[in-house]
Amino acid sequence: MADMSTDVSTDTPRTRIRGLSQAAGAMFLVGTLAGVAGVIQDYPLYGGQALRYLLAAAVLLAVTRLIGLRAARLTVREGALLAALSLFGLVIFNVCVIEATRRGGPALVGTVLGTVPLALALLGGRPSPRVLGAAAVVVAGATLATGLGSGDLPGLMWSLGALFCEVCFSLLAIPLLPKLGAVRVSAYSAALAVPLLAVTGLLLDGTAMLRVPTLPEALGLGYQSVVVTTVAFFLWYDALPRIGAATAGLFAGLIPVGAIATGAVLGLGTPSVPDLLGAALVVAGIVIGLSAAGPPATAAGSPAAGGRQPAAGAGSPAAPASSPATGASARRSP
């Protein structure tokens, strides 16, 4: 797994604020998936996900052409990292979430995924006690907002697999972002996920993996593809080099908050007192974590958008422990 200290943060407060806003927006959008889950629940799962990533890849590849990004030549190592990112962060992640939901319900997998901030803080090198405390508060809030499910041991194991893949989704992208930038990492990983999901669907569902969707299903799959995949992927990958892995990871606690807000807006349910308390804890943990973060390190150029190679020595692993991302190094993760 990639060393979290190899990435680079940018050099201005404005850029850092942009990264914080993007990380928050990305995780909130991921949480809105709950609002469309009921619409597409009867559509073949793997075929639907293959269609989702196919459309997302088409949009993202079109964007790369429009903004003048050429196809990148990858080294063997970079190709392997990209393939692993797509396999673990997209394909196997979806399989784990699907199976965990079937066995333990969405509450169980949601609760386990709520530990992403803590996992990233622990993997970030030498996190300060304040950062660990902030991550623990976010985890507690996400758990309270999601609710502990009544799943069995297989459901828990699938959920832990989803947690591992969610961490891979971020960490495996870190070495790729300086060269490729957020748009191409998102586009290439989504494109690679399509044949992998298609093969899985054929093996498990045969020709039944695809059918003509109803209008609500088409709208739901389109939302997943354009908003949750295309937009959220770019926001997340663009944020990582700006604010660092552990800081960005705190915003994973907004996933259940996004689900609560979407449910309320769509009339799917009124938030309960535990929902609201959990959301408040998540926000408090994020504030604590951000207050513990030091100023971002100076870099020669941001790898997030244009893919320029950073200056040597930036993001040193010997950075102060008070930084949640080992010297504001970036972490890269749907």
Rank of each mutant, 00 (worst) to 15 (best):
V212C: 01
V109R: 13
A140K: 10
A119H: 05
R331V: 13
A252L: 13
L82V: 09
A330L: 10
T111A: 13
L215T: 14
L144H: 11
R77H: 03
L122D: 01
I92N: 00
V194G: 09
A292D: 00
Q224V: 13
L66M: 15
L277E: 02
L69H: 14
S21C: 13
G267E: 00
V199N: 08
S150Q: 10
M157V: 15
A24P: 06
G181P: 07
A121Y: 06
G269T: 10
I98R: 13
V183G: 03
T230E: 07
F251G: 09
L268N: 03
L250F: 08
M209Q: 15
Q22K: 05
Q49L: 15
A173H: 03
P295G: 09
A252P: 03
I255H: 00
F93C: 01
L20S: 02
G301W: 11
E78H: 07
A2K: 09
V287E: 03
A187G: 09
R52H: 06
V226F: 12
F164L: 14
R16D: 06
A208R: 15
V185S: 05
L113I: 15
V131R: 07
L266C: 12
A318L: 14
L118G: 06
L240Q: 15
A279T: 01
A293G: 07
V39T: 14
G278S: 05
L204M: 13
R332G: 12
F233S: 11
A218S: 12
L171S: 07
V8G: 04
G201F: 08
A84G: 14
P320F: 06
F88I: 05
S86V: 07
A173L: 04
L281Y: 00
A292W: 05
V112I: 15
L197M: 12
L33F: 14
G31T: 08
G289D: 03
A297Y: 00
A246L: 08
A297C: 07
E99Q: 14
